[in-house]
Structure formats: structure tokens, C-alpha cells
Design a protein around this nucleic acid. Structure first.
Lengths: 210, 210
DNA sequence: ATGATAACTTACCACTGTAATCATGTGGTT
DNA sequence: AACCACATGATTACAGTGGTAAGTTATCAT
């Protein structure tokens, strides 16, 4: 209450008036700056490069500054993982909107899942790997993960089938992501795989109820 | 080779004659000692606890001693991962020996897969996670992983179905392993799940060709 | 017994997460 | 306007990590 000139909430990038020093002592919105730096590292490098210190360096602050905004490294990872779950959920919801027989929706959702993993491999490793803390300590993670299963089930009119589809496409995605199997000609050619996996998924679920 | 009292080869545990110092300067068979220490850590703790220094401590040597036997940390992980793949392959081969309709073999292999992951969670994370180096640098890893797919396919008389089964059961196992989903009542109750997953797998593949 | 060498230890380096403490702005009160 | 409290940042420090280099010790071949 009583804010004279400031609307509520943190301003995204603009630093307040001073402007003579290139680097203000106060970043302005370091929390988002850190998240953005972290996202960039996950895109350009991989999960093992996502050090708290590297994030701080990239955001242009000292290596201890992040502790004013995240209690520890884990908390940063949780935040990024939640973002990943939200994006994946979006992919799935969109893919489930397709009409026609259920096998089309299955194949479409599977392809979308593969596309997400291909687009954000490091985020997928974070979401589904052991780096995230025990879900009990962060209920939001459980909620976000459950939402994936719920959306798949909702698009398929049968929760049991939803779980089966999730397991199948998730397994395929993880096996390909970690190079355990090699669909397609060039190894780690993750980006051409949605169509291939769509075929596989279709052959898996098509004859069942169609 | 005028060995007076010693037969050739490294003796497994017994240190040679001196016996007055409790800890001999030379371990005798440190390579296996390190592997055993590493296995123990994976059983009692988790993958993140498997530092090279912790392994060395547990084996009773200095933190630099392992480098006489493994070029780096990765190499130790590769060795343990290969052991894991061999054990999993054994599980699958045994499970595929069951007679009867193909759906029985599918369910049996799936349950065996889940049982392996439940028995060696940390090893499974190692085998299927990003900690292992790029498979190109260690062809043995590719061979061991391919063998899993081959065995599953061989037990099912159709390699395509084999890949589908692998993907489905692998996805289920990973989702449960990392607590993304929660089959069963108590969370992380990984050990009661083979039967539940067997039911799921059966419902997944039973109606197809049976 | 005596080198040569393999196996191990000690001492480093750069890096990490994290905590304690110091410095600097910013906003609200007088 | 002056001032102070507090949030936010910087510094410093510490224990732990993977890895390397150099020194030490035991074993082997001669």
C-alpha cells in the first residue's frame, strides 16, 4: 500500500533512473535474470553445466547473490523443472485436440512428447532424472507431474490407457534421449524422430481399439 | 620368473607374508577392491554419492590411487554400467524362457525388468541416465544396450514388438523409479510393483496378439 | 643386491555449494 | 532534507570434488 510512483511488482529489465554506471549494484530483477540465464545454459550446454555459479556468472552477479532469491541449488532446479512440466503439458493438450479416431490422438500425443524432449533435452533430463529433490518436499512437482498423466488420460477417454501410452512414449523418449537405442540413421539425431516414433506408437496401440 | 613362493596372478584378498602392518602399502587387487566399494556405495547410498574419492576411502586407499586403475571417474562408471546391463540381460533371458502364450512372456519380461530396477535403482539410474559418457567413446556400452533389445525381441519372435515392449516397460520403470508417478499406495514403494506393472503390461499387450 | 617400474601417497589446481560477514543502495519515516 | 532499516548485492572462507604432478615404497627381473 501507499506506493507513490511505483506500480506493484518487479520491473522486468529497466533499471531505475541512475543510468550512469553501466552495471547497477542492484540488478532490478535478479530472480528472473537468474532463471533466464539458467534456461540459456540448458539450451546451449547441458544439465551438468547448470551450476549455480555459472548461472550467477551469466547473470553478471557474484556467485553468492543467487542465495538471496533461491534457498539453494535444488530450488532453482525445481523452478526450471516446473516450467518444463508446464510446457510439456501444453504440448500434450494441443496434441490431444486433434479429431478422428483415438489412434490418431495417441500418435499425435506421442509425437508431441517426442518433440518436446527433442526440443528441450536438458530440461527433460532435469524433469525426469534424479537431480530433482524428493517430490515430498516440493508438492508442486507432484502436481505438475500428475497433470501430465491427467492430460494424456483426458485426451484418451480412458485413464488406464493414458498411463500405458505415457509409459510407452516416455520409455521411447528416454531411451532415445540417452542414446540407449538408436532410431534413425545418425546417432543422437533426435530431431527427426517424432515421425518415426509416431509410427512405432501407432503400431503399438492401433490394433487395439480402432 | 623366479617366484619363490608366489603363484602368478593377483591374489584376491590375502596380503602376502609380511602381516605385521595391518594395512599393506600394496592393496593386492585394488581394481576389484574399488569396484566392490563402488557397488556397495550404490547399494547403500545413491548415484550421487559415488564419488571417486568416496570409493577410494571405502577401499582404504588415497584419493589418487584409483587413477592407477581407471583413467578417470567416467571409466569406473562405465564398468559398473556394463555390469548392470549384463545383470539385466540375465533377468530378461530367464524371464523369456517361460512357456505359454506370448502375452505371458511379455508380462514376465516386464516384471523382470521392473524387478531389476527395484533391486538396483542406483545402477539403473547409472545405466539409463546421462552420467555415462557418449556411447561412441565406449562401444561396449552400445553393445550391452543393444543386447537388451535383442534379448527382448528374441523372446517375442518379433523385433518390432520387442522394441515396443522395451519402450513401454522402460518408461514405466523410469517413471516409477524417479517418483514421477506413484503406482501402489506408499510412495517409492518400488518393491511391490512388479506385479502391478505386470497387470498393466498385460492390459497393454494382451488383446493385441493372443 | 640392485635398478627399473608399478602402486600408492602427498601436495597441488580449479571448480563446486553454502555460510558468514561486509557493502551499497532504496524506500519509508520524521 | 536527513536518516535509518532493510533488502540486495559483494567478499571471503570452508569443505568437498575431479584431476594432475611429483615424491615414496614395495615388488620384480636380473
Amino acid at each position: 500500500m501507499g506506493n507513490t510512483s511505483n506500480d506493484s511488482g518487479p520491473q522486468t529489465q529497466a533499471r531505475p533512473g541512475r543510468g550512469d554506471s553501466d552495471r547497477a549494484y542492484h540488478h532490478g530483477d535478479l530472480r528472473n535474470g537468474l532463471l533466464e540465464a539458467a534456461r540459456a545454459i540448458l539450451e546451449e550446454q547441458d544439465l551438468s553445466a547448470l551450476t549455480l555459479r555459472a548461472v550467477a556468472r551469466r547473470a553478471g552477479v557474484s556467485h553468492a547473490a543467487p542465495y538471496r532469491h533461491f534457498p539453494n541449488h535444488e530450488a532453482l532446479l525445481v523452478e526450471l523443472g516446473l516450467e518444463g512440466f508446464a510446457e510439456l503439458r501444453h504440448f500434450i493438450v494441443d496434441a490431444g485436440k486433434v479429431g478422428g479416431p483415438e489412434s490418431d490422438r495417441i500418435a499425435n500425443i506421442g509425437a508431441a512428447y517426442m518433440r518436446f524432449v527433442a526440443k528441450r533435452p536438458a530440461v527433460a533430463r532435469l524433469m525426469f532424472g534424479p537431480q530433482l529433490p524428493h517430490r515430498e518436499k516440493f508438492p508442486a512437482l507432484t502436481v505438475a507431474a500428475d497433470a501430465i498423466g491427467t492430460e494424456i488420460g483426458a485426451a484418451l477417454s480412458d485413464p488406464n490407457l493414458g498411463l500405458a501410452v505415457w509409459a510407452a512414449v516416455h520409455g521411447l523418449a528416454m531411451l532415445v534421449l540417452e542414446n540407449v537405442i538408436d532410431l534413425g540413421q545418425r546417432r543422437s539425431g533426435l530431431h527427426v524422430l517424432p515421425s518415426r516414433s509416431e509410427i512405432l506408437l501407432r503400431s503399438l496401440f492401433a490394433t487395439k481399439r480402432d
